[in-house]
Each structure stands twice: as C-alpha cells, then as structure tokens.
C-alpha cells in the first residue's frame, strides 16, 4: 500500500476549498508525465474533488488514504 514512486510531496494541510484543487492544477506541471505527486490535505472535500479534477483534466488518482487527520492523495500526471 502506498508504495508508489513519488516524485514530489505537496503539503496542502490547512487549506480549505477551493485551494487544494487550485494548487494541484498549478503544481501538476512541476512533475513529468507518468510521475506521481503525493498530496497531503486536511480538506475532506478533497476526497471527492481530486478524482473529479483528475477525471476532467485527464490525470489519475492512484490512491487515497486517511490517517491522523491527514488525507493523502496520490496523483499521477498523465498529460
């Protein structure tokens, strides 16, 4: 579990809607196509927002997990 090769960790803890999605859209270009960003967020809306964002923008959410009040989302850049 969570053994993805992570190219970058993006700490978005404490940022509420719409910031997490805005930040990932700005930062996804910082990794290469095929690489993975690991996002840390405390916004529960991100659990549904990241898959929706990924679907619309043509990227992929590989996995989400929760623990210690932090949500981790693994986003793979596909384009």
């Amino acid at each position: 579990m969570s053994d993805h090769a992570v190219a970058r960790v993006l700490d978005l803890k404490g940022l509420p809607c719409p910031m997490p999605v805005v930040k990932i859209s700005q930062e996804i270009g910082s990794v290469k196509v095929g690489e993975v960003i690991e996002v840390h967020t405390t916004d529960p809306g991100s659990l549904s927002d990241f898959p929706a964002w990924a679907k619309t923008t043509g990227n992929e959410v590989l996995e989400t997990d929760q623990g210690n009040g932090v949500i981790r989302i693994f986003v793979k850049r596909l384009k």
Partner: peptide, 11 residues
Amino acid sequence: MIIATGAAAMG
C-alpha cells in the same frame, strides 16, 4: 469566485 477559480483549476 470559488466556483470560478475551481473551474479554472479544472481546466
């Protein structure tokens, strides 16, 4: 503004 920035983030 939240919808606008969110939509822009969605491409």
